[in-house]
């Protein structure tokens, strides 16, 4: 029975972590680069990463 309380606590922590990750991603404007990031798998492995 106690394990359920633990599970609820763990799920709460996971929710908090996922929300934290989401906030971090939005603050870094990663959602604005989805089209560019979607191309990453198409690039050659030996291609150097480009940064502006």
């Amino acid at each position: 029975m106690e394990v359920v309380f633990l599970l609820v606590f763990v799920s709460g922590v996971l929710v908090a972590c996922s929300i934290g990750g989401f906030i971090y991603s939005i603050r870094n404007d990663e959602h604005e680069h989805v089209d560019r990031l979607a191309l990453a798998p198409l690039r050659d492995d030996n291609e150097a990463p480009r940064r502006a």
Partner: peptide, 9 residues
């Protein structure tokens, strides 16, 4: 040298 295209902005 490098480019970042941002269609969102």
């Amino acid at each position: 040298c490098g480019v970042v295209v941002n269609p969102g902005a």
